[in-house]
């Protein structure tokens, strides 16, 4: 019945197709080979005056299954040793987890090579452009991910870059990605960029003045991130279990973990 006409989703739509392309192929093994899986989950990043917060839930799914309740989607880029100590850049990837890991490895290698060759850590702007190239290199067999890169720019101001799967990118104040991005993004527009907010008494009708966005203090941003995720968990089945946050400041990267609902 569902294939006759698609009903409106009273809940957010699932990010995986209801009929898998592979199942249609029957006994033929390779003609229908489909190398991508959607592992669900959501990420977001918000930049401030002197910090950037990257966040992602830790649930990994395939279809209606939960693979694990702790599979981080946030990766430190360009640090030292296996723990990436001293890193100042964070990459978040959501979509197909295997591609996400591969992408992280490539970018991390690039960042490390840069440091070895230039004797200084790579800037976020350079790292951001390099990431775009890595993605575009696979223009015809893309990394199936929505990436967000966060760090501090040359002036110590929070920097945030978001990408489509083939490398188109943009610097932004905030961005939500992944399964619940459609739920989170309009909330962020309103709470971070003050969209649709006007200054009371500043005029009538069209003369009303828009409330201008300004960088938010860290504690307010942390609150917004938490609210965004608790809301997404409530209405999207692929989001939940845990919330991992990386706060990037001039002092380095601070990790915060908070439990989310596991249902």
């Amino acid at each position: 019945m569902a294939s006759m006409y698609s009903m409106p989703s009273t809940t957010p739509g699932y990010s995986f197709p209801s009929t898998h392309p592979m199942t249609a192929s029957g006994p033929r093994q390779h003609a229908g080979f489909y190398p991508y899986t959607d592992n669900g989950g959501s990420t977001l990043g918000i930049s401030g005056k002197d910090f950037t917060i990257m966040a992602g839930d830790t649930r990994s799914t395939s279809g209606y299954n939960i693979n694990t309740r702790y599979e981080p989607k946030l990766f430190k880029i360009g640090g030292d040793g296996p723990k990436n100590e001293g890193a100042t850049i964070v990459l978040s990837v959501v979509g197909f987890a295997a591609d996400g890991h591969a992408l992280k490895e490539r970018l991390d290698t690039v960042a490390k090579m840069y440091k070895y060759q230039h004797g200084k850590p790579i800037s976020v702007a350079a790292c951001a452009q390099r990431l775009s190239h890595i993605l575009y290199d696979k223009r015809f067999f893309p990394f199936y991910v929505h990436a967000i890169l966060g760090g501090l720019d040359e002036n110590g101001v929070g920097a945030l870059y978001s990408y489509d799967p083939v490398g188109s990118y943009e610097r932004e104040q905030c961005r939500a990605a992944g399964a619940a991005s459609s739920l989170i993004m309009p909330f962020l527009d309103n709470q971070v960029n003050f969209k649709n907010q006007y200054i009371p008494g500043s005029g009538e009708g069209h003369a009303l003045q828009q409330r201008m966005p300004e960088p938010l203090p860290r504690h307010e941003v942390e609150e917004i991130v938490q609210d965004a995720f608790t809301s997404a968990v409530e209405r999207h089945i692929e989001v939940g279990d845990g919330l991992q946050m990386f706060v990037i400041t001039s002092n380095g990267i601070e990790e915060i973990y908070k439990d989310l609902k596991k249902d």
């Binding site: 989703s9 809940t11 957010p12 739509g13 619940a180 459609s182 739920l183 989170i184 993004m185 309009p186 909330f187 309103n190 709470q191 609210d227 965004a228 809301s231 997404a232 409530e234 209405r235």
Partner: peptide, 9 residues
Amino acid sequence: DQLFGTCEG
């Protein structure tokens, strides 16, 4: 979808 997000928030 968007309304679920904004309302829930």
